[in-house]
């Protein structure tokens, strides 16, 4: 019985630690405004959420299916997807770095982060 209590104590501590970590992270103010849409390991799109004045939608498709993403000023979400679990849709809007939206079946994720985009520079035809 004593042994049981030890284990229960350990797992309780882990739960408290994890919960604390989640709460701290959620309450940490972040200046994250760059939404990165990553498919199969590649950043396919980057959106500065603060510059979005008119909301718009676009679709990202892959061999497995398609996700429709909606962008509004300061936030982003997946509004529709044909994946089996719909977790990406149920996650709802994200606006800062709390947790990325992820659609594992489609290898798609949307991460909102600071200005660090994963790229060091962008070249375009000027």
């Amino acid at each position: 019985m004593k042994n049981n209590i030890k284990w229960i104590a350990l797992f309780s501590v882990i739960i408290i630690l994890c919960a604390a970590l989640l709460i701290i992270r959620r309450n940490t103010p972040s200046d994250a405004v760059m939404a990165r849409i990553v498919q199969d390991g590649n950043v396919i799109r980057e959106i500065d959420l603060l510059t979005v004045d008119d909301p718009y939608e676009f679709s990202v498709s892959c061999d497995e299916g398609c996700n429709t993403i909606r962008v509004e000023k300061g936030r982003i979400c997946v509004i529709d997807a044909d994946c089996p679990d719909k977790i990406c849709v149920n996650t709802g809007y994200i606006s800062d770095s709390e947790l990325p939206i992820v659609c594992l079946p489609h290898k798609l994720s949307i991460v909102v982060s600071g200005t660090d985009s994963g790229y060091d520079a962008v070249v375009g035809g000027q």
Binding site: V43, E46, S117, Y119, D120, A121, V122, V123, G124
Partner: peptide, 25 residues
């Protein structure tokens, strides 16, 4: 690294030793 209106040139690697990752529009 410099980015002159979309023209990018890099010296060496990033400080952590990895290569610069340059996105192409």
């Amino acid at each position: 690294i410099v980015s002159l209106g979309g023209n990018v040139q890099a010296l060496g690697t990033k400080p952590d030793g990895s290569n610069w990752n340059i996105a192409i529009m």
